[in-house]
């Protein structure tokens, strides 16, 4: 029986939905994107799927399951569809390490990079001690990854897993978090750089980005700049 496409609800600008798309692409699972606007993620019908009002959420017509939280979603996709264990392992020891790095991504990299970009891109008032806090934390996280990749190409074992892929969308915009030119973002982290570059060169990431960025926008900075302009214009309009 053929697999019916998995419906992925997302709002394009955020990095998190693209973790799920990457895994779907890597596993060649059919899917369809339901793209919603940023301002609609805390409204019906989306909050009926995810009461947290955050993207992504998935609906799997093959099993009837509705699921949200990227980490839970990609673990589900792999358990349900990755029968040959392309992106994970069947043994508890390796599987536990895959989950460990995934948890480090969702509770460490995601929240800290996210708050970092909030404080120096999206928030209008510049608060140096808050910005500094998240810049330092982002560097600390890269340091942990750098060490985790000592003498290794991948985080767990000798092949790429969902744990490696989970770090790609946020690391791809690390320059925004660190406020540095794109080519300098991995300056102190050569192993992280090689690891990241090998993953963004994969067809899965290229495909995800083809679908991903809203039209007329070529990269995240442009997109964030656009949001910023819109926000400033609105603030000015309200102020006048």
């Amino acid at each position: 029986m053929s697999t019916k496409p998995i419906r992925v609800w997302l709002a394009p600008p955020g990095p998190n939905p693209w973790k799920v798309i990457l895994v779907l692409e890597e596993l060649q699972i059919p899917y369809e994107i339901v793209s919603i606007k940023f301002e609609d993620i805390k409204a019906k019908p989306f909050i009926d799927l995810n009461p947290n009002g955050r993207v992504p959420a998935i609906e799997d017509p093959n099993t009837g399951l509705v699921l949200w939280e990227t980490g839970a979603v990609i673990l589900y996709l792999v358990e349900q569809y990755d029968v040959v264990k392309k992106l994970t392992y069947g043994t508890v020891q390796e599987k536990s390490h895959v989950q460990q790095w995934l948890m480090f991504q969702i509770s460490g990299q995601g929240p800290y990079y996210g708050q970092g970009s909030w404080f120096h891109v999206l928030h209008s008032e510049k608060l140096p001690s808050a910005i500094n806090r998240y810049v330092e934390e982002a560097k600390r996280i890269c340091g942990v990854l750098e060490q985790g990749l000592t003498d290794k190409r991948w985080l767990v074992g000798d092949k790429i897993t969902l744990a490696d892929l989970a770090f790609v969308p946020w690391n791809d915009r690390l320059d925004v978090v660190l406020m540095c030119p794109a080519e300098c973002k991995f300056n102190d982290f050569p192993r992280v750089k090689a690891w990241h570059e090998s993953m963004v060169a994969r067809p899965s990431w290229e495909k995800a980005m083809e679908n991903g960025m809203p039209k007329q926008v070529s990269n995240m900075e442009e997109y964030l700049a656009k949001i910023k302009v819109k926000k400033n214009t609105r603030a000015e309009a309200e102020g006048s």
Partner: peptide
């Protein structure tokens, strides 16, 4: 899967 959903909600949120 629902258990994992809320577990990740705690750890990431």
């Amino acid at each position: 899967y629902e258990m994992n959903n809320w577990l990740f909600f705690q750890n990431a949120g």
